[in-house]
């Protein structure tokens, strides 16, 4: 017998490729659940408080310190005087990292 797929309507959801956990991700998928933005405490896959649409409209930003935030959240933080241009997590000067496209 030969099975021919005429049309397959599949469903998937997207997840930010935060890099760090990719390897374990495969098996620990559901447990390692929600990584949240350290500023607004909303899941990365959600959106920052000012946005309405998640995903490309509310992207993430990576720091060289490996911390990840919603871009909007971080920019807002950096715009405040008290931030001193530091990462809110480790107080190192914030340097936006180049995304490694390759895993």
């Amino acid at each position: 017998m030969k099975v021919a797929v005429k049309q397959w309507h599949a469903v998937a959801y997207w997840k930010w490729d935060t890099g760090a956990t990719t390897e374990q991700d495969a098996n620990a998928d559901e447990d390692a659940e929600d990584d949240v933005c350290g500023i607004c405490r909303v899941s990365f896959e959600g959106c920052c408080p000012t946005c309405k649409m998640p995903g490309d409209d509310c992207p993430l930003i990576w720091g060289q310190c490996t911390h990840v935030f919603h871009m909007h959240c971080l920019l807002k933080w950096l715009n405040t005087a008290s931030s001193k241009q530091q990462c809110p997590m480790d107080r190192r000067t914030w340097v936006t990292a180049e995304r490694k496209v390759d895993r």
Partner: peptide, 26 residues
């Protein structure tokens, strides 16, 4: 997909959806 949206991964929800199949039997 990963090439198209490099910063995103895809997780399948395999049980959802529907398939139209054509089975060629003898």
């Amino acid at each position: 997909f990963h090439k198209f949206k490099p910063d995103k991964n895809l997780k399948w929800v395999p049980q959802l959806g529907a398939v139209s199949l054509k089975l060629d039997l003898e």
